[in-house]
Protein backbone atom coordinates (compact mmCIF):
# COMPACT_ATOMS: atom_id res chain seq x y z
CA UNK A 1 0.00 0.00 0.00
CA UNK A 2 1.26 3.45 -0.81
CA UNK A 3 2.51 5.12 2.28
CA UNK A 4 1.30 8.68 2.07
CA UNK A 5 0.59 10.72 5.11
CA UNK A 6 -2.51 12.85 5.21
CA UNK A 7 -2.10 15.76 7.61
CA UNK A 8 -5.22 16.67 9.59
CA UNK A 9 -7.62 14.30 7.84
CA UNK A 10 -11.31 15.13 8.06
CA UNK A 11 -12.18 11.46 8.30
CA UNK A 12 -9.89 8.95 9.89
CA UNK A 13 -10.80 5.29 9.55
CA UNK A 14 -9.14 2.97 12.05
CA UNK A 15 -9.20 -0.79 11.65
CA UNK A 16 -12.76 -0.72 10.39
CA UNK A 17 -14.47 -4.07 10.05
CA UNK A 18 -17.97 -4.45 8.77
CA UNK A 19 -20.16 -7.54 8.97
CA UNK A 20 -23.38 -8.04 7.07
CA UNK A 21 -26.09 -10.19 8.68
CA UNK A 22 -24.92 -13.77 9.12
CA UNK A 23 -21.44 -12.56 10.08
CA UNK A 24 -20.35 -12.09 6.46
CA UNK A 25 -17.40 -9.77 6.76
CA UNK A 26 -17.34 -7.16 4.01
CA UNK A 27 -14.51 -4.96 5.31
CA UNK A 28 -11.46 -6.56 6.87
CA UNK A 29 -9.90 -3.82 8.93
CA UNK A 30 -9.60 -0.68 6.82
CA UNK A 31 -7.19 2.07 7.83
CA UNK A 32 -7.55 5.19 5.74
CA UNK A 33 -7.35 8.97 6.13
CA UNK A 34 -9.36 11.34 3.99
CA UNK A 35 -7.84 14.74 3.27
CA UNK A 36 -10.00 17.79 3.85
CA UNK A 37 -11.39 19.75 0.90
CA UNK A 38 -10.16 17.19 -1.58
CA UNK A 39 -11.93 14.66 -3.72
CA UNK A 40 -11.14 11.06 -2.86
CA UNK A 41 -12.37 8.30 -5.14
CA UNK A 42 -13.04 4.77 -3.94
CA UNK A 43 -12.57 2.25 -6.74
CA UNK A 44 -12.60 -1.50 -7.00
CA UNK A 45 -14.55 -4.35 -8.57
CA UNK A 46 -18.13 -5.12 -7.59
CA UNK A 47 -18.31 -6.51 -4.10
CA UNK A 48 -14.97 -5.05 -3.01
CA UNK A 49 -16.59 -3.09 -0.19
CA UNK A 50 -16.39 0.43 -1.56
CA UNK A 51 -20.11 1.15 -1.19
CA UNK A 52 -20.14 -0.53 2.22
CA UNK A 53 -17.24 1.69 3.25
CA UNK A 54 -18.78 4.96 2.07
CA UNK A 55 -22.04 4.02 3.80
CA UNK A 56 -20.14 3.60 7.05
CA UNK A 57 -19.30 7.31 6.98
CA UNK A 58 -22.85 8.46 7.65
CA UNK A 59 -24.03 5.21 9.23
CA UNK A 60 -26.36 4.40 6.37
CA UNK A 61 -25.55 0.77 7.06
CA UNK A 62 -27.41 1.07 10.36
CA UNK A 63 -30.54 0.61 8.28
CA UNK A 64 -29.55 -3.00 7.64
CA UNK A 65 -30.81 -5.28 10.39
CA UNK A 66 -28.17 -7.50 11.89
CA UNK A 67 -25.11 -5.73 10.55
CA UNK A 68 -22.18 -5.05 12.81
CA UNK A 69 -19.30 -2.58 12.82
CA UNK A 70 -15.92 -2.79 14.59
CA UNK A 71 -13.24 -0.16 14.63
CA UNK A 72 -13.54 3.58 14.40
CA UNK A 73 -14.56 6.28 11.97
CA UNK A 74 -13.37 9.60 13.33
CA UNK A 75 -15.11 12.57 11.78
CA UNK A 76 -13.78 15.90 12.94
CA UNK A 77 -12.24 14.31 16.01
CA UNK A 78 -15.22 12.24 17.11
CA UNK A 79 -15.87 8.56 16.60
CA UNK A 80 -19.20 8.42 14.79
CA UNK A 81 -19.79 4.93 16.15
CA UNK A 82 -19.69 6.07 19.77
CA UNK A 83 -22.91 5.63 21.71
CA UNK A 84 -23.81 9.29 21.96
CA UNK A 85 -23.55 10.11 18.27
CA UNK A 86 -26.53 12.09 17.02
CA UNK A 87 -27.33 10.34 13.75
CA UNK A 88 -29.35 13.24 12.34
CA UNK A 89 -26.47 15.61 13.03
CA UNK A 90 -24.02 13.10 11.56
CA UNK A 91 -26.00 12.89 8.32
CA UNK A 92 -26.11 16.66 8.15
CA UNK A 93 -22.34 16.75 8.45
CA UNK A 94 -21.91 13.91 5.97
CA UNK A 95 -24.49 14.38 3.22
CA UNK A 96 -25.04 11.72 0.63
CA UNK A 97 -25.81 11.66 -3.08
CA UNK A 98 -26.95 8.35 -4.49
CA UNK A 99 -26.61 6.50 -7.75
CA UNK A 100 -30.18 7.20 -8.72
CA UNK A 101 -31.19 10.77 -8.07
CA UNK A 102 -33.98 10.83 -5.52
CA UNK A 103 -35.66 14.23 -5.49
CA UNK A 104 -38.82 14.46 -3.42
CA UNK A 105 -42.08 14.99 -5.31
CA UNK A 106 -42.02 18.62 -4.31
CA UNK A 107 -40.90 21.87 -5.86
CA UNK A 108 -37.24 22.53 -6.61
CA UNK A 109 -37.25 25.09 -3.80
CA UNK A 110 -38.73 22.69 -1.25
CA UNK A 111 -36.27 20.01 -2.22
CA UNK A 112 -33.31 22.22 -1.47
CA UNK A 113 -34.57 23.40 1.93
CA UNK A 114 -35.89 20.02 2.98
CA UNK A 115 -33.00 19.35 5.33
CA UNK A 116 -33.34 22.76 6.92
CA UNK A 117 -37.05 22.30 7.45
CA UNK A 118 -36.71 18.95 9.19
CA UNK A 119 -34.03 20.49 11.39
CA UNK A 120 -36.73 22.92 12.53
CA UNK A 121 -35.60 25.96 10.59
CA UNK A 122 -38.37 28.42 9.66
CA UNK A 123 -36.54 31.56 8.53
CA UNK A 124 -37.76 32.30 5.00
CA UNK A 125 -34.97 34.73 4.34
CA UNK A 126 -32.46 32.03 5.21
CA UNK A 127 -34.34 29.59 2.97
CA UNK A 128 -34.18 31.91 -0.02
CA UNK A 129 -30.52 32.61 0.57
CA UNK A 130 -29.64 28.94 1.04
CA UNK A 131 -31.61 27.91 -2.06
CA UNK A 132 -29.63 30.34 -4.18
CA UNK A 133 -26.19 29.54 -2.78
CA UNK A 134 -26.77 25.78 -2.84
CA UNK A 135 -28.12 25.75 -6.37
CA UNK A 136 -25.25 27.96 -7.48
CA UNK A 137 -22.74 25.67 -5.80
CA UNK A 138 -24.33 22.70 -7.56
CA UNK A 139 -24.16 24.63 -10.87
CA UNK A 140 -27.93 24.43 -11.32
CA UNK A 141 -29.03 27.97 -10.44
CA UNK A 142 -28.95 29.45 -13.92
CA UNK A 143 -31.05 26.60 -15.28
CA UNK A 144 -33.79 26.68 -12.63
CA UNK A 145 -33.82 30.16 -11.07
CA UNK A 146 -37.02 31.12 -12.92
CA UNK A 147 -38.92 27.99 -11.99
CA UNK A 148 -38.05 27.26 -8.40
CA UNK A 149 -41.66 26.50 -7.56
CA UNK A 150 -42.03 23.92 -10.30
CA UNK A 151 -41.84 20.23 -9.48
CA UNK A 152 -38.36 18.78 -9.22
CA UNK A 153 -39.62 15.75 -11.09
CA UNK A 154 -39.73 17.81 -14.28
CA UNK A 155 -35.94 18.19 -14.33
CA UNK A 156 -33.65 16.14 -16.52
CA UNK A 157 -31.68 13.26 -14.96
CA UNK A 158 -28.52 15.33 -14.74
CA UNK A 159 -30.39 18.30 -13.27
CA UNK A 160 -32.06 16.05 -10.69
CA UNK A 161 -28.68 14.74 -9.64
CA UNK A 162 -27.34 18.26 -9.27
CA UNK A 163 -30.48 19.14 -7.29
CA UNK A 164 -29.67 16.29 -4.93
CA UNK A 165 -26.17 17.71 -4.59
CA UNK A 166 -27.71 21.14 -3.83
CA UNK A 167 -29.98 19.52 -1.24
CA UNK A 168 -26.96 17.96 0.44
CA UNK A 169 -25.09 21.28 0.37
CA UNK A 170 -28.01 23.29 1.83
CA UNK A 171 -27.43 21.94 5.33
CA UNK A 172 -23.75 22.94 5.30
CA UNK A 173 -22.16 19.51 5.37
CA UNK A 174 -18.49 18.89 5.98
CA UNK A 175 -18.34 15.90 3.73
CA UNK A 176 -20.36 14.98 0.67
CA UNK A 177 -20.53 11.26 0.04
CA UNK A 178 -21.34 10.27 -3.51
CA UNK A 179 -22.21 6.70 -4.39
CA UNK A 180 -21.97 6.26 -8.16
CA UNK A 181 -23.51 9.70 -8.77
CA UNK A 182 -23.18 9.58 -12.55
CA UNK A 183 -23.84 5.98 -13.41
CA UNK A 184 -27.36 6.76 -14.64
CA UNK A 185 -26.37 9.89 -16.56
CA UNK A 186 -25.43 10.53 -20.18
CA UNK A 187 -21.93 11.89 -20.98
CA UNK A 188 -23.07 15.52 -21.08
CA UNK A 189 -24.86 15.40 -17.73
CA UNK A 190 -21.94 13.42 -16.33
CA UNK A 191 -19.60 16.19 -17.45
CA UNK A 192 -21.75 18.80 -15.67
CA UNK A 193 -21.81 16.80 -12.45
CA UNK A 194 -18.05 16.21 -12.67
CA UNK A 195 -17.50 19.91 -13.19
CA UNK A 196 -19.65 20.56 -10.15
CA UNK A 197 -17.61 18.11 -8.10
CA UNK A 198 -14.42 19.93 -9.07
CA UNK A 199 -15.95 23.26 -8.03
CA UNK A 200 -17.28 21.91 -4.73
CA UNK A 201 -13.85 20.75 -3.72
CA UNK A 202 -12.97 24.32 -2.77
CA UNK A 203 -15.56 24.20 0.02
CA UNK A 204 -16.23 20.58 0.82
CA UNK A 205 -14.57 17.24 1.23
CA UNK A 206 -15.92 14.81 -1.31
CA UNK A 207 -15.74 11.05 -1.24
CA UNK A 208 -16.97 9.36 -4.37
CA UNK A 209 -17.56 5.73 -5.18
CA UNK A 210 -17.33 5.05 -8.88
CA UNK A 211 -17.12 2.12 -11.23
CA UNK A 212 -15.94 4.45 -13.92
CA UNK A 213 -12.19 4.51 -13.65
CA UNK A 214 -11.83 7.40 -16.03
CA UNK A 215 -14.20 9.37 -13.85
CA UNK A 216 -12.11 8.62 -10.79
CA UNK A 217 -9.06 9.76 -12.73
CA UNK A 218 -10.78 12.95 -13.91
CA UNK A 219 -12.40 14.21 -10.75
CA UNK A 220 -10.41 12.98 -7.80
CA UNK A 221 -7.27 14.17 -6.07
CA UNK A 222 -6.75 10.91 -4.23
CA UNK A 223 -7.80 7.39 -5.07
CA UNK A 224 -8.23 4.35 -2.86
CA UNK A 225 -8.38 0.92 -4.47
CA UNK A 226 -10.25 -1.74 -2.56
CA UNK A 227 -10.35 -5.44 -3.26
CA UNK A 228 -12.26 -8.11 -1.37
CA UNK A 229 -12.80 -5.86 1.61
CA UNK A 230 -9.18 -4.76 1.91
CA UNK A 231 -7.56 -1.47 1.05
CA UNK A 232 -4.93 -2.36 -1.53
CA UNK A 233 -3.56 1.02 -2.45
CA UNK A 234 -4.20 4.63 -1.56
CA UNK A 235 -2.42 7.39 -3.38
CA UNK A 236 -2.44 10.64 -5.29
CA UNK A 237 -4.71 10.01 -8.25
CA UNK A 238 -2.39 11.00 -11.07
CA UNK A 239 0.37 8.84 -9.64
CA UNK A 240 -1.94 5.90 -9.09
CA UNK A 241 -3.17 6.01 -12.66
CA UNK A 242 0.23 6.49 -14.25
CA UNK A 243 2.38 4.37 -11.99
CA UNK A 244 0.48 2.30 -9.45
CA UNK A 245 2.62 0.77 -6.71
CA UNK A 246 0.66 -2.43 -6.35
CA UNK A 247 0.31 -5.11 -8.98
CA UNK A 248 -3.35 -5.73 -8.12
CA UNK A 249 -4.10 -2.05 -8.64
CA UNK A 250 -2.29 -2.16 -11.97
CA UNK A 251 -4.26 -5.23 -13.06
CA UNK A 252 -7.55 -3.66 -12.05
CA UNK A 253 -7.12 -0.25 -13.63
CA UNK A 254 -5.75 -1.69 -16.84
CA UNK A 255 -8.66 -4.13 -16.98
CA UNK A 256 -6.51 -7.26 -16.70
CA UNK A 257 -8.24 -8.42 -13.59
CA UNK A 258 -8.70 -12.05 -12.70
Amino acid sequence: MTDIRIENPIIQVNNLKFYYPGNARALHGIDLSFPEKQVTALIGPSGCGKSTLIRCFNRMNDLIDGCRVEGEVILEGENIYSKNTDIIELRRKAGMVFQKSNPFPKSIYENVIYGLRIAGEKDKKLFAERVETSLKAAALWDEVKDRLQESALGLSGGQMQRLCIARAIAVNPKVILMDEPCSALDPKSTARVEETIKELRNEYTIIIVTHNMQQAARVSDYTAFLFEGNLIEFGVTDQLFVKPQNEQTEDYITGRFG
Partner: peptide, 9 residues
Protein backbone atom coordinates in the same frame (compact mmCIF):
# COMPACT_ATOMS: atom_id res chain seq x y z
CA UNK B 1 -9.42 2.77 -25.00
CA UNK B 2 -8.15 5.51 -22.70
CA UNK B 3 -5.31 3.38 -21.38
CA UNK B 4 -3.83 3.89 -17.93
CA UNK B 5 -0.76 2.77 -16.00
CA UNK B 6 1.58 0.46 -17.94
CA UNK B 7 -0.59 0.65 -21.07
CA UNK B 8 -0.53 4.43 -21.01
CA UNK B 9 3.21 4.47 -20.48
Amino acid sequence: HQPVATDLR
